[in-house]
Write a protein that binds this DNA or RNA. Sequence first.
DNA 1: TTGTACGCGTTATCAC
DNA 2: GTGATAACGCGTACAA
Lengths: 339, 339
Amino acid sequence: MLDVAKAAHVSVATVSAMINGSAPVSPELRNRIEQAIGLIGYKRNAIARSLKLGTTRTVGLMVADITNPFFTDVVAVIQDVLHRAGYAVMLCCNDEDVALQDEQIALLIDRSVDGLIIAPAGDDETLKRMIASANLPTVLIDRLCDGIDTDAVVLDNRRAVQDATIYMLGLGHRRIGYISGSLDTSTGRERLAGYRAALEAAGLPCEEDLIRIGNFREKDAYTAALQLLTSPERPTAIFSANNLMVIGVMKAIRDIGLHCPDDVSVASFDDFPWADVFQPHLTTIAQPVQAIGEQAAQLVLDRLSGASPEAPRRLVLQGRLVIRDSCRPVGSLAPRAIA
Amino acid sequence: MLDVAKAAHVSVATVSAMINGSAPVSPELRNRIEQAIGLIGYKRNAIARSLKLGTTRTVGLMVADITNPFFTDVVAVIQDVLHRAGYAVMLCCNDEDVALQDEQIALLIDRSVDGLIIAPAGDDETLKRMIASANLPTVLIDRLCDGIDTDAVVLDNRRAVQDATIYMLGLGHRRIGYISGSLDTSTGRERLAGYRAALEAAGLPCEEDLIRIGNFREKDAYTAALQLLTSPERPTAIFSANNLMVIGVMKAIRDIGLHCPDDVSVASFDDFPWADVFQPHLTTIAQPVQAIGEQAAQLVLDRLSGASPEAPRRLVLQGRLVIRDSCRPVGSLAPRAIA
DNA sequence: TTGTACGCGTTATCAC
DNA sequence: GTGATAACGCGTACAA
């Protein structure tokens, strides 16, 4: 910029004023400066600008696992919206690991991001402290943490699972296995609560043996499902608390020589784009990923522009039960593909 | 840092020397400084550091579509490796759109990333010029661009598709539909070349009518497959040049009232984690995503540390044909799920 | 071993 | 309308 100023025989202040339109500049100088810029190939330095302005126009985005199609979709939407608003996004994954999560958040804050959008793996003290002391516009997505009072957009998990459970109950299932996510997350807890609520409302006891923790990972869910399916009184249906785990559940069913939905009904949280193309067509709870991403991005953007009220805003969206054919009325037997 | 220096009754130089270990500091001062840091809650400012050092410890990562499981996996690996090395990653998607791509790359370069990992949507002049003038460590993944002579890690696309086609040919298929990606990409061209090569080697003519462009998107592929399947002489098999498009193909097959593999065989580029759980079990070409991600990340890291030779390094990995049961010998008819 | 002073590229505030 | 100059926070010669 100094070079440009010299070449155009003006001061750096004038160049800056012109580039940012922060002060009126005479057409003549404006012209000279433009020429000089073209000649030198000058581009303003965002780092120096950040140092001076105290803003990086970058927001940090941390999710549990980018490999999870749900998060993938949400990340895509957020990236898109933020890009339109001129923001870059720094992406991190915590792999459902609290220690790694702390590390990533520290990295993000260290890089001076202007805002944070995170799907926390858990709510340890370090995280709370870092977020509080960073004092950045922050929005929680998917999962809540008590002790972190920021904007958030989440699903009505409880209600969604309750609906799904009621649906399975309505099909006559009485022993419904439940593969849960980590109870360190609000989603893990809320979804399980929905399952319990449905059973209770139906006046049914909740057998603790039917509940297994899968920690949202395929592998854990595989093991859990295997236990469930080999137990003396095998459940007639299984609900998986997310999309990764249902793959594990299906693998377990296959490996044990059973078939869905003939031998065991299956339903799951999170929808798949291919769910109605491949067999069995999975019955799922579809999340409004587009809306989640858009709202989350808008929430940070609002705070960034100072257009938000003081109080944290919490958006609760509704899931949608998509009934396909991985659940059968209990006792019914349909023709099978291969005997 | 000035505050810390004051509180510890030393100079900023000493504080800096201690923090960076760039010069020996006496244990006593070291102690005083540490105390002061804890007291003030000092954290060194990465922006100022970047301005001074000319490095941001951030690399830009651009892929066509984060929603594509292939890219998702690669991104996850890259993010992981780079994080371990202390680098943050800025993520962008070009949505297979050249204009958007230029915008994103400009954004990344403007943010002064230290390196670039990109899966280009196409090779327009602007992109070439930007990359050349940015003069950054750059590695191309998945797709090559002539005119961009940088490090790269790609697949032997031609050979992989050739193998798959030979396999289908071996099953007796003579009319194999081919749903191609954009021919503006090297993958689009190379994969198609593999198909052609296989036909030619078998002494078969290549009917241009059997080749349709799907641009790597599900929707386009759906339309293309529909055309193929309703044509007077319907192909007995279809190959899809990527994972997104095969979903479109399967939807077309379903919507037209046909079944795979009974009525039409299907194979596709890119594997799915659930491919051997849901029916039909898709025959695919699996890419070594882990290796691709690791190598790509290592390539930038090497350049960043100056440990690379001058000449660009090009890594070509091999795909693996995973035969499942979405392809049948032509003419054979197996029992069907529902009559 | 420690302290001083300067430069990195911008922008904002003031004089003119 | 324009120009000089002081920050922003850090690293680092160079001198002590």
